Amino acid sequence: MAEPGPQRVLVLNAGSSSLKYRVLDVASGTASVQGQVERVTDVHQALATVHDRIASAGVGEADLIAVGHRVVHGGARLVRPTLVDDDVLAEIENATRLAPLHNPPALAGIRSARAEYPHLPQVAVFDTAFFANLPAAAATYALDAEASARAGIRRYGAHGISHEYVAGEAARLLDRDPAELDQIVLHLGSGASAAAIRGGRPVDTSMGFTPLEGLVMATRGGDLDPGILLHLLRHGGLDVDGLEELLHHRSGLAGLAGHPDFRDLLAALDAGDERARAAYDVYVHRLRKYVGAYLAVLGGADVLTFTGGVGQWAPRLRADSLAGLQPLGIEIDPERNTADQPGPRRISAAGSAVTVLVVPTDEELSIARQTLAVLG
């Protein structure tokens, strides 16, 4: 009997500022085609570029079994990987009101893939799904209960695909059962979020009703006194659309320093730019607050893991965000932290009670695996 051929899945990961793509053999995890379009300003043009690159590599519809898509927000109904049909597409579009920066590029990716590969199943994998069963105390806002219920207001979280994958890889790296570990995962990229994970399941996360809450990000400011929004509406000359544009595009590192890309921020910091220094200090301060909060939520942690483009490649940030936390059991080894190693690694000092790791996330591999699981 002939051996079955490779089960290749095309994964499209359309983020707020980048478009990643990989053709993955799910069993081996190897990619026959992969790439990324960065600093995307026109998602439709970026998608056309991606399809051209895939075709130029000799991969067509007959070489694939499915297309898997990262979708940031599934709302209250889409809480597991789902085969896409017109109704699911409409539900994703409806959830765009909760993630206006992220769901539109994912929708564009799904529609372009349906047109490019009309006979392939399309599967949506949701960043919010990992947090669908957050404990009520963590998921609930202290608002009027009836008003919240009518509007579907709760903390949904985001980056769940990454948090789940990284927590699993951290346990594997330590040769431990995830059920035995209390973990803090810091996903730091253009978007940034923290998660407290007990026994493999999340018990809290920094993003909330939308991906605006929590840590300082490239263009989003994270936690904010809601009274500021009322003040800006009443006295700041902004209407609702202007406020939305401010919160999604002119806040965070971009708003504070004019540098949404962390690499540019660090270059400006090294050049003595005071705005960059202030933005960096705010970023680090917020990150330290969440580390401390999640140590309290978990009652201490076994593992703290950095991931994402910033988390993986900014040793200065890792050192500064955890500096002076030895009384909390966290100590980084300077040489391990600055070693130029691309793979998963331990960066904590030998005597650190909390193991500190750097684990590259692989959302595309996770999406491919979950896509295959949906197909049965």
Rank of each mutant, 00 (worst) to 15 (best):
Val216Ile: 14
Leu295Pro: 03
Gly214Ser: 02
Val216Leu: 14
Gly255Gln: 12
Ile332Met: 10
Asp223Leu: 07
Ala271His: 04
Thr219Val: 08
Glu213Ile: 00
Lys289Leu: 07
Met207Val: 03
Val240Phe: 12
Asp241Glu: 13
Leu224Asp: 12
His285Thr: 08
His248Asn: 15
Val282His: 10
Gly292Met: 03
Asp225Ser: 03
His235Asp: 15
Arg336Glu: 15
Pro315Met: 04
Thr210Lys: 05
Leu212Ser: 05
Gly324Gln: 01
Phe209Tyr: 14
Leu304Cys: 11
His235Trp: 12
Ala267Val: 08
Arg263Leu: 13
Ala301Lys: 00
Gly308Asn: 06
Gly236Ile: 03
Ala268Asp: 13
Gly221Ile: 02
Gly299Ser: 10
Ile330Thr: 00
Arg250Glu: 15
Asp273Gln: 06
Phe306Gly: 00
Arg275Pro: 07
Lys289Met: 06
Gln341Phe: 13
Arg288Thr: 13
Leu325Asn: 02
Asp264Ala: 14
Ala314His: 03
Gly237Ser: 04
Arg346Met: 10
Gly252Phe: 11
Leu298Asn: 01
Gly258Gln: 05
Leu247Asp: 13
Ile228Phe: 13
Leu224Gln: 11
Tyr283Gly: 06
Leu325Met: 14
Thr305Leu: 10
Gly252Trp: 07
Ser206Tyr: 01
Asp340Phe: 12
Val291Arg: 03
Tyr294Val: 05
Leu229Glu: 03
Phe209Leu: 14
Leu266Phe: 11
Gly252Leu: 12
Asp241Gly: 09
Leu322Phe: 02
Gly252Glu: 13
His248Ser: 08
His248Glu: 14
Phe306Asp: 02
Ala267Ile: 05
Glu244Asn: 09
Gln312Leu: 15
Thr305His: 09
Leu325Tyr: 07
Phe306Gln: 00
Tyr280Glu: 07
Leu287Thr: 06
Ala267Trp: 04
Pro344Gly: 15
Gly311Ile: 05
Leu233Ala: 11
Arg220Cys: 08
Ala319Met: 14
Val282Ser: 10
Lys289Arg: 09
Leu212Glu: 11
Gly311Met: 05
Ser321Trp: 06
Gly208Tyr: 00
Arg288Gln: 12
Gly308Ser: 08
Pro211Thr: 04
Glu245Tyr: 09
Gln312Lys: 13
Arg277Gln: 11
Leu295Glu: 05
Leu215Ser: 02
Gly255Asp: 15
Ala323Ser: 14
Gly236Asn: 06
Ser251Arg: 08
Met217Thr: 02
Asp225Met: 04
Ser251Glu: 12
Thr219Ile: 03
Gly308Trp: 01
His235Glu: 15
Ile228Lys: 12
His231Ile: 06
Phe262His: 10
Pro334Ser: 10
Gly329Gln: 03
Ala314Lys: 09
His285Lys: 05
Val297Ala: 11
Ala323Val: 07
Leu325Phe: 11
Gly252Ser: 13
Arg277Leu: 08
Asp273Cys: 00
Met217Asp: 05
Ala296Asp: 06
Leu256Val: 09
